[in-house]
Write a protein that binds this DNA or RNA. Structure first.
Lengths: 189, 189
DNA sequence: CTAGTAAACTTAAAACCTGTAAGCAAATAG
DNA sequence: CTATTTGCTTACAGGTTTTAAGTTTACTAG
C-alpha cells in the first residue's frame, strides 16, 4: 500500500480544515485518520495524542489571526486601524469557525500556542498607539478590547443576538464607533 | 437493590456540580452514573441523551445567572447597577466554571435554555435604564455589554491575561469605569 | 546492487463512552 | 393480594483513544 505521507503539519492542517467543516468538538483522531485513508494508530507517530492535535490547531489559528491582524494594522492608525483590526477577528471567526473555537482552549503558558496568543495581545497594544493612553490604562484597554472582540464574536456566532431584530452588522459598526470614542476619551483614574 | 431515586432534575444538578468539579467537557453520562451508584443506561429513562444533559445544565446556569443578576439590579441604578451586574457574571464564572462553560453552547431558539438566555439579555436592557439611551443605541449597547462581560471573563479564565503583570482585578475595575463613562457619553450616529 | 536499518503504517487489543433493547425487581394501584 | 407500571440491570452493538507489536516500505551504505 502506498504511504499517506503524514507529518505533524499535514495532520494539523487537516485537523483545522475538518474542525471548520464539522465543528471543533467533533474533530476526532478517528475522523482525521479516515480523511487520510489511514488507520487511527498511524497518527500517533506524528502527534502525541488528541489533546496535542487540538493545541496545534489552536496555535495555527492564533498564528493565522496574528498574521492577518498585523497585515490589517500596516499603514493604518486611529479608528481606521481599530475597525480593520476588529474585523479581522470577526471575519476570521465566520470564515473559520472550527479554528476560531480552538482559540478558546486553555493553553498552558509554556507552549508555542501561548506565544501566538501573546503576539495577538502585542498587536492590540500596537493598535492603541494611535490613541494616547499611558500605562496602566493601556494594559486595561488591551484587555477590554480583547474581551470585547472575543465576546461579541462568540455571542454572535452562538446565536445570542438572534432574538432582537436589529441588524448585527449595524450593532457591530456602532460598537466600534463607541469604542473609538471611548479610547479618545478614556476616563482618568 | 434500593433505588437511586433519579429524576431529570437531580441528574441535571449532579451534572452541573460534576462539570464544576472536573470541567464541562469531561462531564459524561458514565461519570454521572458512577456518582449515583447506578449503571449508565439507567440515566436514559430520565434524560434523552448526553446532549440533552448538557443543554439542561446550560439552562440551569443561565437561569441561576439571571436570578443573581436580577437580585443585583434590585434597588440599584447607574454605575452602581453596572458594577453589581458585571460582577455577577464574573463571580459566577469563577465560582461555577463548569456551569459557566455550559452557557457557551449553541442553543437552538426553541428551547427553555434559549428563554433563559433571553432573560439575561432583558436584564442587561433593564440595567441600561439608568443611562439615557434610545433605540437602536440601546440594543447596540446591550450587545456590546453582553460581549464584553462574556469575553473578558472567558479570556481571564482561560489565562489570556496572565502574561502581563498588571492586576486583573484592577483592569476589570477600570474597564467598568470606562464603560460607565461610555454609556453616559454614547456617541451620536 | 544488495543488505541493513529506520521510518511509516497495520493489526491487535484493552479501556472507556454512547445508546438501545430486553429482562427483572420494586413500588403502586385496584 | 394480584396486576401493572416504573426503575434499574444486563447484554450488547458501535464508536473513540491509545499502546504495543508486527509488517512493509523506503532509504542508506558498503
Amino acid at each position: 500500500m502506498a504511504r499517506a505521507g503524514l507529518t505533524a503539519e499535514r495532520v494539523t492542517q487537516a485537523a483545522a480544515d475538518l474542525a471548520d467543516e464539522i465543528g471543533f468538538q467533533h474533530m476526532t483522531v478517528s475522523a482525521l485518520a479516515r480523511g487520510f485513508g489511514v488507520k487511527p494508530a498511524a497518527l500517533y507517530s506524528h502527534v502525541k495524542d488528541a489533546q496535542d492535535v487540538k493545541v496545534r490547531v489552536a496555535s495555527l489559528a492564533l498564528t493565522e489571526l496574528a498574521d492577518r491582524a498585523a497585515a490589517a494594522l500596516a499603514g493604518r492608525a486611529g479608528k481606521d486601524a481599530l475597525v480593520a483590526f476588529a474585523n479581522v477577528y470577526r471575519d476570521y471567526a465566520k470564515e473559520h469557525p472550527g479554528r476560531y473555537a480552538a482559540t478558546q482552549m486553555e493553553l498552558d503558558p509554556e507552549t508555542a500556542a501561548a506565544d501566538a496568543a501573546r503576539r495577538n495581545a502585542e498587536l492590540t497594544r500596537a493598535l492603541l498607539r494611535g490613541y494616547e493612553l499611558q500605562e496602566p490604562d493601556q494594559t486595561d484597554a488591551v484587555r477590554m478590547l480583547g474581551g470585547l472582540f472575543h465576546g461579541y464574536v462568540t455571542l454572535e456566532k452562538a446565536g445570542g443576538f438572534r432574538h432582537t431584530p436589529r441588524e448585527v452588522d449595524a450593532s457591530w459598526s456602532r460598537t466600534l464607533d463607541a469604542l473609538d470614542s471611548l479610547l479618545r476619551n478614556w476616563p482618568p483614574a
